[in-house]
Design a protein around this nucleic acid. Sequence first.
DNA 1: TGCCAGGCCCTCTTTAGGGCCTT
Length: 209
Amino acid sequence: MKKKNQMRRADTVVVLDFETTGLSPTMGDRAIEIGAVLVEEGRVTDRFQELMNPGFRISGFIESYTGITNAMLRNAQPCDEVMDRFANFIQGHNLVAHNASFDRRFLDAELERINRSYTGQFACSMLISRRIYQDAPNHKLESLVRFRHIETDGTFHRALADSEMTAKLWLLILEDIRQRYDISETPFSLLQTVSRTSKTAVHRFLSTR
DNA sequence: TGCCAGGCCCTCTTTAGGGCCTT
């Protein structure tokens, strides 16, 4: 029983997604929305979603791309306050994001500003999808949602909606690996290894588990 | 108005270049 509970804790992840003013925190870009879901034992048990005011006007492109407007951000709380609460939300959990290198850069940059940190490790649903779903048309989140017939209300490029869909994709990836390779457990460390294994070697790796 | 970065991965590769993905 103890071993089973330990495995369950290892399977707990926070799936997160940032909307931002651009692509690079080192070029001055900031977060404008964070969305995240806590996934425990195969289902979403908690959610986090907040807009945040970056302290400057966002571009028309970002308004159009995300649907988040300057008017919506005018009365939002500053990034520092929102990210302080988000640091509490992710405390102690491993993290998942689609193209995780992007979200990790913004998470690191925003938390560094407020002298907060996190202990969890990242896994990337995009890198794993490239290995597990090699016949997908491409590996954009929206395309994978269609490819795996994931239910959606049609909202994309908003933080909570994208994190919810990434969480559903994550759970399908785990289920597909279990079924395809007859594996009973898919701990976080296994998925991290999959994301680092070459596309040509990943089938052999999982077949020998 | 239009552009910016960075990690991963493939190939016509590794003394490089370019596409994919994220906003």
